[in-house]
Design a protein around this nucleic acid. Sequence first.
DNA 1: TAAAGTAGTTTATAAAATAAACCAAAATAT
DNA 2: ATATTTTGGTTTATTTTATAAACTACTTTA
Lengths: 94, 94
Amino acid sequence: MLKKLDPIIHSELRLAIMSLLISVNRADFKYLKEETESTAGNLSVQLTKLEEAGYIKVEKGFKGKMPQTTCSITKMGIEAFEKYVEDLKSYLKM
Amino acid sequence: MLKKLDPIIHSELRLAIMSLLISVNRADFKYLKEETESTAGNLSVQLTKLEEAGYIKVEKGFKGKMPQTTCSITKMGIEAFEKYVEDLKSYLKM
DNA sequence: TAAAGTAGTTTATAAAATAAACCAAAATAT
DNA sequence: ATATTTTGGTTTATTTTATAAACTACTTTA
């Protein structure tokens, strides 16, 4: 009955990141930091975990002369997020 | 936009416990252990946390000669669960 | 009456989240 | 020109959380 929830996604900050990337498809570090109201350190760590899981792609480039990290969700990430939402429903009676 | 999720509820096992108690209203330790597929130790710890938060009531009695711990959700618990579900929706686009 | 099972709690360990400290380069003020 | 602050992060340390292992007390069964 109760499905096992993907632990990579079931973390408040990572869930927030995934949620944002599902909507916007592409977002830079600064935007994610503002929207999630997280610290840079925490965000950096969680982005790395999502990247290692293959759920997001992280690209490093420059915006003018300043470094810029851009993130986007992968196909695997979309599927994992959708499965997570489905599994979660078993807990929420939806 | 993204709401802060109640950390007492946002834990897989505690969410499962709350979800079960919302439905059945009353459940003993054994039932919760089976349904959640958790270890007794982990279950014991998480029940105590929910009790300390005022979200559940834990009553110790006997079933025949064997000790029996019975749990039920409180009004506070119901409200917290409902708020959690609402807040969660901001992440899931529902 | 010894061994095994039940119903848990307590304590120790592992994993995760978060915060603090740090780094390199750019922009700004002196 | 050069010191100071700001930006955009990463790395490391600390705290918190989850989980597992060990233990307790009593009961049932062999």
